[in-house]
Design a protein around this nucleic acid. Structure first.
Lengths: 252, 252
DNA sequence: ACCTGAACACCGTTCAAGT
DNA sequence: ACCTGAACACCGTTCAAGT
């Protein structure tokens, strides 16, 4: 076996003309798997259930998909189709970056466990690449040097994906309405003793407050740390004195 | 397996050398599970193997551990024991924060799949809380306001955990500073077409370079964006809710 | 040559029977 | 009352038999 690109479109689509039922295909398999993931969570997605839903035996899927790993990668990338790369385009490039990342986060949070796939086997499909490319383009357009841009995109995507993994934990079950995603964390933090963890105790309210604002704040902070101040054309900001750089290493 | 001779001494030499069999306990179970995780990865850790290693049936573990979920949470927190909370203490609080986070990252990267446990069920054990408390303490000592500190700790931990999840994948050698040549990510990025993904193509070298420097840069950037280094020693400015430059909402 | 039912080697969890 | 072997309901993957 040489190196195989799982994202290469497969030519195998239909067998036999008449379609009484959906013909088995890679696309149908991935679509069904994503639907199961979105509906019931990562743990409820399985090759066997996909096969059953498509009315075949589990062995049949291996013609179209090499592995569960490969299926997961394909599912992840297919979900990224929902990320809007070209939505409203604000003037400020920072806002465009934030808009893209926010859309990405929304997609991750919508399907419980989806973000975890990003941390399993390397899932770098065409849609992920499109997102990375778009982000790099924004930084390049803003005049950020290549290495800073590359590392910034890495940082931003890792943070948002992690946030998505935390937000996309199970909790979509109508039966389990009481066990909200943040439930356990919140309870643990609220119940912390002032003696053992004085700083957590003091900040317990802030630690569990507004996830949405928090992400917004985080993205602003990161962007601010990476490319401080700005000569974003259009709005001239009052010039701060040369923004404090961290010590040397940052480069260029 | 065969029948057990009741007259045979129940002490058994462990596979790893001279140790005597420990009586079944929650601690022994968690220790064995963590050992399996560290040795063979997340997927190779199982309740049944833990039971086998401890020479019981799988049902016996349920006396000490409610669930696989609970075991995973316990394993994660036990691993955090290895994070050095009191090591060398640099003068600069930023360096102390970075030191702590770097130690955390090293622990995550050492056990493949360990970081993924952080994104499963909420794992907020005593050791995790100790780390959070220490970080909050550093920010408090630096004069950063409580909410900023709380959100900053959240941001930093999520980023580092995500990085740990990526580094703790199979095929990534923590000793090696470069991603392995045969790594899927690297192959995907290296092989990207200039027409489809121009910015990735242009930055392909930077995208796969030096993970260690990258983390260092990321932590500096985040800290810089959160609490810009003060020119005059002693006073750290804390940002407002939103850094000044963000204007307006992102359309969708 | 293609497809797939059945088999294989695992899982986590439960339960009734044995001590 | 405690413990646990065996059973149950699932997995992913392989393979030989059937078409």
């Amino acid at each position: 076996m040489g190196t195989r690109n799982p994202f290469e479109p497969s030519e195998v689509v239909s067998r036999r003309g008449g379609a009484v039922k959906q013909p088995l295909s890679r696309d149908a398999i991935v679509a069904e798997a994503l639907e199961q993931l979105t509906r019931d969570g990562l743990e409820s997605m399985s090759l066997r259930k996909v096969a059953a839903a498509l009315e075949t035996g589990p062995a049949s899927l291996y013609v179209y998909v090499h592995d569960l790993d490969e299926l997961e990668a394909l599912v992840f990338d297919r979900a990224l189709t929902r990320v809007s790369l070209r939505g409203a385009k604000p003037k400020d490039w920072r806002e465009r970056v934030k808009g893209l990342l926010t859309s990405y986060l929304k997609v991750l949070a919508a399907s419980p466990g989806l973000a975890q796939l990003a941390f399993r086997r390397a899932a770098v499909g065409p849609n992920a690449l499109r997102i990375v490319d778009a982000l790099l383009g924004e930084f390049a357009g803003a005049g950020v040097d290549r290495r800073t841009a590359a590392w910034a995109v890495d940082l931003l995507l890792l943070y948002v994906t992690a946030q998505g993994a935390e937000q996309g934990q199970r909790g979509n079950d109508p039966e389990n309405d009481q066990f909200k995603p943040e439930g356990a964390v919140m309870r643990a933090i609220r119940g912390v003793s002032a003696q053992q963890y004085p700083h957590i105790h003091a900040a317990r309210a802030e630690l569990v407050s507004g996830p949405t604002q928090r992400v917004d704040w985080a993205l602003d902070s990161i962007l601010n740390g990476i490319a401080p101040a700005s000569r974003s054309h259009g709005k001239a900001r009052s010039p701060e004195t040369k923004p404090a750089r961290s010590q040397g290493r940052v480069g260029q």
